[in-house]
Amino acid sequence: MDEHILDDLALNNALSGTNSHLKLLLGISSILICVFSPSFFTPLVVGISMAAVTVGLAKIPLREYITLLMIPVTFAASGAIVILFLTGGGDPILSLSLFGATLTATTGGANLSLLVLSRTFGGMSALFFIALSTPMIQIFTVFHDLKFPREFIDLSMMVYRLIFIFIGEAIAIHNAQVMRNGYNGLKNSVHALSMLCGALFIKAWVRGEEMLIAMDSRCYDGKFEQCGAKQTIGILPAAATGAYLCGCSVLAVVFSGITLF
């Protein structure tokens, strides 16, 4: 069970009052700068600065942030190793013998894997910035303002509500099963997990029906009303965002030629 729901942190962060359009613009633009940057340098700068903003301005605890960052960075690092040995070009720098096969890393492979690694780091930092600074409720308001399909927003809001019900139920069932040795051995685990999922589905299904009754009795007419508070865009945050994005774009262009080898 993954209980690291980032929304919990996002609800209490120091930037929650800042305009959510601006935060999404900053996050998504940073991701795009990383993906389009031909050199590893700019994504690295974006990654470090986004992490600094998230920890420094949004006041997300550093320890939590590092734990979160380790999940994708570990995966990206192992992926980069595969790319290092698979792709090539340039001079060989390292040879390894593994199960009788020889794996050779070249300078081309090293450049590419460093680029992918830094892009993932930059992209994930920017994604974390969005996830940790903008509560989901604010994101719904942005979707609404951007004229996303109504069905999509309504469905997302209801899924949002149900996710927390489901996780609560799942933890309760899981605890009860663990206390009864439910996860003792593979056969028991499979049985216990399917019981958990089945019971979860039915319980949540009943909740969903009850929710419809509750909604009907409150005059639900097939539409959810958006009650997001209007947020003003401050001059300082807007200027800072603009300056940051321009700076990163310039960096990406100026340092486009930098490679490791």
Binding site: G79, I81, L200
Partner: peptide, 22 residues
């Protein structure tokens, strides 16, 4: 919505694996 949340919870049970995805 129940189906969506269910898919989400089911997919949050994860195992580690090599290369960029998990």
């Amino acid at each position: 919505a129940v189906a969506g949340a269910f898919v989400f919870v089911l997919s949050s049970l994860k195992l580690p694996s090599v290369t960029g995805s998990c």
